[in-house]
């Protein structure tokens, strides 16, 4: 599925999310709280054999490298031509309790923002890694149940410390 279709699905799911609660989540906490009840919202949990601080270090290394990007997509039909410019904004937080990765998308062109947009854009994914034991962590992904397969695969790789690379966000 190409990026335009996925973006449209993600945006629609966000609209449903906002429709359910009357606004778009303005913080990561609001996103965590409101996503489980939202249309196409999914909370996925899994465990990895790494400490949450190691996961945090990988997030800190890879998120700015891979997700601090601007993606331009175009769609053209016989009667229209549309350009969507999206700035991706990742944030990594490491506390003594958990590691957090927030991914936000700021549509700079081609998408009408009906709802109030948080400073770095709409939240599209939040990932938490919390300790289970010294070298084991539980990872929780708050995300849409459709699309973003490449991004999800990459972040799972970062969490597990395997096959580390950047997701091709045009896919």
């Amino acid at each position: 599925m190409n990026y335009r279709v996925l973006s449209t699905i993600a945006i629609i799911s966000m609209v449903f999310l906002s429709g359910c609660v009357g606004h778009m989540p303005q913080t990561a906490d609001e996103f965590r709280k409101e996503l489980p009840g939202a249309f196409l919202g999914e909370v996925e949990k899994f465990e990895v054999n790494r400490s949450f601080t190691d996961i945090g270090n990988t997030f800190q290394k890879m998120a700015p490298k891979c997700l601090d990007v601007r993606v331009t997509s175009t769609s053209q039909t016989s009667t229209s031509y549309q350009v969507i410019v999206t700035k991706w904004n990742p944030t990594v937080k490491i506390t003594n309790k958990r590691t957090e990765l927030h991914i936000q998308q700021l549509h700079e062109q081609g998408v009408m923002n009906v709802y109030e947009v948080p400073p770095n854009g709409y939240y599209m994914m939040v990932v938490d890694a919390a300790p289970v034991s010294k070298n084991k962590s539980q990872v929780t992904m708050y995300r849409s149940s459709v699309g973003n397969e490449t991004l999800i695969k990459a972040i799972k790789g970062w969490a597990a410390g395997e096959n580390i690379g950047c997701p091709d966000l045009t896919k």
């Binding site: 490449t150 695969k153 990459a154 096959n163 950047c166 997701p167 091709d168 896919k171």
Partner: peptide, 9 residues
């Protein structure tokens, strides 16, 4: 330099 299964590095 790598690009495998839509993951690049």
């Amino acid at each position: 330099v790598s690009y495998r299964d839509d993951i690049y590095n």
